[in-house]
């Protein structure tokens, strides 16, 4: 399939709703530990929103170039220490190196949302965990609660030169505000226009895929497109820390001797 067709397929006709009150019922559900959005495993069930975003990382392809990190930092004008997609270098027993890119897992049961004292972090209708940096008080409880170290505190100001058009919002938090917490937003500012997230677009190894759990489709930069649920099954995809019941929406495909769903770095 041609990339532009996939993009058309992924195009969400409804722009992201910025009106917070529409999420309230769902926020409450998430806080009670009830499932929100579609269930894991991509059953193709149509939920409240057109899209339920997911992500797939093919560890067999990743060569640790960190283009994704760079692209993310460029897109969101992040300080050096803010690696919303961070590439870990791991050594297996035979001293062979492999790489694990880690972005926000967009948990269905996100611990960070539960512990936020001011409801500054929430899940949007597309299943993406966002932060309202106008509300965040910077207590960093969410950072302590996140089992994936996916949240970053803005110790310094954003490197972006100030502009009269600056209007940071949860979907496009640029520039980052000092003293608040930031995290991967799965580039919802791109996906709602039918574009790929910055990291996916930058992955020259085609290791990163964006997926929609509702339409059960996943695709990467080169337009390789698979039926999402089948791909997960056929490639023995796993998720980090299943036992915590956070139900992440980022799946990994192992290939370089990683222990499937086991080992210290599950």
């Amino acid at each position: 399939m041609m990339p532009h067709l996939i993009r058309a397929a992924l195009y969400s006709p409804s722009p992201p709703q910025l009106v917070r009150c529409q999420y309230r019922a769902k926020l409450r559900r998430s806080r009670l530990g009830l499932p929100i959005g579609s269930r894991a495993g991509a059953q193709g069930v149509r939920q409240e929103s057109q899209r339920q975003w997911g992500f797939v990382v093919d560890l067999r392809r990743c060569d640790g170039c960190k283009y994704c990190t760079q692209a993310c930092q460029d897109t969101h004008y992040l300080a050096e220490d803010q690696e919303w997609i961070k590439v870990y270098e791991v050594e297996d027993e035979n001293q062979n190196k492999y790489f694990i890119p880690r972005l926000c897992m967009q948990c269905e049961n996100p611990p960070c949302v539960k512990v936020c004292p001011v409801e500054a972090t929430f899940k949007n209708p597309d299943g993406v965990v966002l932060v309202d940096q106008h509300r965040c008080i910077g207590c960093r409880m969410c950072m302590a609660a996140c089992p994936y170290e996916a949240r970053y505190f803005n110790f310094t100001d954003s490197p972006k030169p100030p502009s009269p058009f600056d209007n940071p919002m949860p979907e496009f938090p640029v520039p980052q505000q000092r003293g608040t917490v930031g995290k991967c937003v799965l580039c919802v500012h791109y996906t709602h226009k039918g574009q790929l997230p910055a990291c996916v677009e930058a992955c020259r190894m085609d290791a990163l895929y964006i997926a929609d759990l509702n339409s059960d489709v996943m695709t990467n930069r080169s337009g390789e497109t698979y039926k999402f649920s089948e791909y997960l099954r056929e490639n023995d995809a796993f998720r980090f820390k299943e036992e915590l019941n956070t139900s992440p929406r980022v799946w990994y495909v192992a290939g370089h001797g990683q222990t499937l769903g086991g080992g210290r770095w599950r």
Binding site: C116, P117, V118, E119
Partner: peptide, 9 residues
């Protein structure tokens, strides 16, 4: 204003 009773904070 926005205190969330679920939060230990």
């Amino acid at each position: 204003l926005h205190g969330q009773v679920g939060s230990p904070v």
